[in-house]
Amino acid sequence: MMNRWLPLVAYIAAVLDATLLGSIVQTQFNLAALSALGVEISFATRLATTGHDLLGFTPLYGSLVAIMMLGAMPAATLVTRWLGSGAWLIHALSAALGLWVMLWIVDTLAPMPTLIAATRSLEGTLAMMASAALGGWGYAILAYTKWDGFSA
């Protein structure tokens, strides 16, 4: 029988997972854009910048991911029950799609064209969606472990 707290634990883990990975990814895209301008970025600077963003970027981004996951994970669970299998893939896709929708909403509402600089390019957007997908995948692993024994 599924632990009643497992979805909550899985949700928190998924939000943390997607947020931290997303932060690391967006830092690398921003630094890559600077490197393309010819500036040298040492490993220590890259590490410090990544660490700074894990503190500075995650409060806002984590809030967006948390809201997104609140919709995306229950929706993925419904689809999984309807299909009867594929939990890992469905939750990963749902989180990725959820982030894409969230970015679209934020960019529509915010005064600037693109709030998160890394998502100005298709590559950056896909990378951020992939980091969200890992969060959704993590959710499925945790939430489904004792429910149907890795039903994916």
């Binding site: 967006q26 910048t49 700074h52």
Partner: peptide, 18 residues
Amino acid sequence: WPLATHGVDYTGALVTPF
């Protein structure tokens, strides 16, 4: 700009480390 600035992005992320 944007290689050197005393500001950070609206998201809280660094625009640049310099």
